[in-house]
Computed example of a mutant assay.
Amino acid sequence: MSLAGRTVLVTRPAAQGAALATLLTAAGAQPLAFPLLDIVPQPDALAALPALAGAADWLVFVSPSAIDVAWPVLAELPPAARLACVGAPSAQRLAALAGRPVLHPSNGADSGALLAEPALAELAGQRVLIVRGIGGRAELAEGLAARGAAVEFAEVYRRVDAAPDWAAFDSAADAGTLAAACVTSAEIAERLFQLAGRSRQATLQSLLYSVPHARIAERLAQLGARYVVTTPAGDAALVDGLSEWFQRHP
């Protein structure tokens, strides 16, 4: 198996890495939980969320963390409210929780792809609630507002630096097993290189990275990473990307 014996960093927030780790293990890899960010819920925003959601025509969840943090306080949604997500894996999970369809991009997994969906082409007089973390990107809100929507935000969490296990990282690097990392946002990529310190930069630049978006690949290249595979969204695609690369480069 192409991943047998290879250590792969799972850099997602701790609550979101288990499924990916399971798939890596099944593929023969040795996943190393290595969260670079912690997700901290915002109590005031969560307290206000049910009322905001009750007045919305659309609820748009922009990340897995938005679903994880917000959904437990949304006991009931207005029957007419429509749901949307930026990526298909998040949309599938939200649909299972909500018991109703969730709009997501038919091609791509970012704000631009969601804005290309015909259902969002004309939003005059509609209220859209974007559920996200503090300080999210502006593209989606600006695009929706340009189509006539009244856009509000529920910024239900903030991101803080986590405390990844650098001793385990160094041990795997010294043993020669550290081979790859799955990185699911440009912010995580930046934190990885920032927190590593200068002594680990060469090791990070030599790893293979599996990422679900070209924007993440571009940021990693700027940070000096030499080997990056860009895959469709989803855990299985990330693992397949690693496996296929190592099959070609044993």
Rank of each mutant, 00 (worst) to 15 (best):
T231A: 02
A180G: 06
R200T: 07
A146C: 00
E218W: 04
E139M: 09
A172L: 01
A138E: 15
L178C: 09
E122N: 04
E117Y: 03
L223I: 09
G148K: 08
G234S: 11
I216Y: 03
E152L: 02
D235F: 06
A181H: 07
G136F: 13
E122M: 05
V228Y: 03
A202Q: 14
R127A: 14
A217D: 13
A121S: 14
R219M: 04
G143D: 08
R127K: 14
R215D: 13
L144V: 07
A149R: 06
A119G: 07
T203G: 04
A146Q: 14
L129E: 12
A149E: 08
A150R: 00
R147E: 07
T231K: 05
L140V: 01
E190W: 02
E139P: 03
Y157W: 06
A146Y: 01
P232S: 13
A181N: 07
T177K: 04
L192I: 03
T177F: 03
S171N: 13
L220K: 06
T231L: 08
T230R: 05
G133A: 10
G176D: 09
D170T: 04
G176M: 05
R200E: 15
E142D: 11
S206F: 05
E155D: 14
A168Q: 15
D174E: 11
A236W: 02
A173C: 11
V183M: 07
A145M: 01
A167K: 12
E152K: 00
E218A: 14
R132V: 00
A175P: 07
A175S: 12
R127N: 12
V131Q: 02
A186P: 00
L207S: 09
T230E: 14
F169Q: 06
A121C: 07
L204N: 13
R226I: 02
A119Y: 06
E218L: 09
A221L: 03
A179S: 14
P164H: 11
A236P: 03
A196C: 10
A145C: 09
A173W: 12
F153C: 00
R137L: 12
Y157N: 01
A124M: 04
A138S: 10
W166C: 01
R226W: 08
A189W: 07
S206K: 05
A167W: 07
Q222I: 03
E152Q: 15
A181W: 06
A146E: 10
A172E: 12
R158F: 07
Y227I: 10
S199L: 04
V128M: 01
A189S: 14
A124Y: 02
E155T: 00
P118T: 07
R132I: 00
F153T: 00
A141W: 05
A214S: 13
L195T: 08
A150N: 02
A186D: 09
A189F: 06
G135M: 00
A233C: 11
C182I: 11
Q201F: 05
T231H: 10
A175V: 05
R226L: 13
Y227L: 12
E152A: 12
T177D: 09
R219P: 03
A119R: 13
S171R: 15
R200K: 08
E117F: 04
R137I: 10
A150H: 08
V131H: 06
A214N: 01
L120M: 14
A154Y: 00
A149N: 06
V131C: 03
Y209Q: 14
R200M: 15
G136M: 03
F193P: 13
C182R: 04
P232I: 05
I130H: 04
A121I: 00
A214P: 09
